[in-house]
Computed example of a mutant assay.
Amino acid sequence: MKSWDDRVDAVWADASGEEVGAETIARIDALAAERGVDDARAEFERAGARDSAGYPADAVVLYRRALALGLDDDHRAQCIVQLASSLRNMGEYDEALTVIQCAESLPAGSPYRDAIATVHALTLASSGRPAHGLSVALMALVPHLPRYHRSMSAYAQEIAELDA
């Protein structure tokens, strides 16, 4: 028999490339029910299904619950990205930025650091601070450059000040 994670992955694979709707939510909810309402991972998957189906307000409640119940580092990072993105989509920019600050406690090597920076940049741009958002995006790119770290970092900081 496939593991719970494998079965969740199969639902998401089936939903890939098409609009997520009631069927996907029902399938995820059925899998989540196997783990109970006090399981952080189950709540995270339930949130993701609603988020993908276009119900960000419902997803936000479940993302917050998943974080409160305690997720492993990998799923916690994903939850922060998805929660902040949902809040941004709902126009709750200050809340989204507060959630992004939670990412500071993630391990330094988290593979989601760039995703968090992307949502951070988008949130700043959406909230009327596009130069600061560009600065965040540029700073996320700097470690990936073969050279020019110091100068590009300085330029990014300079650009952030344009919104002041």
Rank of each mutant, 00 (worst) to 15 (best):
S3L: 06
D6W: 06
D6Q: 15
V8P: 00
D9G: 09
D14V: 11
S16W: 11
G17L: 01
G17Y: 04
G17N: 08
E18V: 15
E19F: 08
E19H: 12
G21A: 09
T24C: 07
T24D: 07
A26L: 08
R27I: 00
A32H: 06
E34P: 04
R35T: 02
G36M: 04
V37W: 08
D39H: 11
A40I: 07
R41Q: 12
R41Y: 15
E43S: 14
R46K: 11
G48C: 09
G54S: 05
G54T: 01
Y55D: 15
D58T: 02
D58H: 03
A59W: 00
A59P: 00
L62C: 05
R64E: 14
R65K: 14
A66G: 11
A68L: 11
A68E: 15
D72A: 10
D74E: 15
A77Q: 00
C79K: 04
C79S: 10
I80Y: 00
V81Q: 01
Q82N: 15
L87V: 06
R88Q: 10
Y93Q: 10
L97C: 10
V99S: 02
I100N: 01
Q101V: 15
C102K: 13
A103R: 01
S105I: 08
A108C: 11
S110Y: 00
R113L: 04
I116T: 04
I116L: 08
I116A: 01
A121F: 02
S127R: 04
S127T: 05
S127I: 03
G128C: 07
G128T: 01
P130C: 07
A131R: 06
H132D: 13
H132Q: 15
H132F: 12
H132I: 06
V136N: 05
V136G: 05
A137W: 06
L138W: 02
L138R: 02
M139F: 09
M139W: 07
A140D: 05
V142S: 02
L145G: 05
L145R: 03
Y148P: 04
Y148A: 14
R150T: 15
A154F: 05
Y155T: 12
Y155N: 10
A156R: 00
A156F: 06
Q157P: 09
E158V: 09
A160V: 09
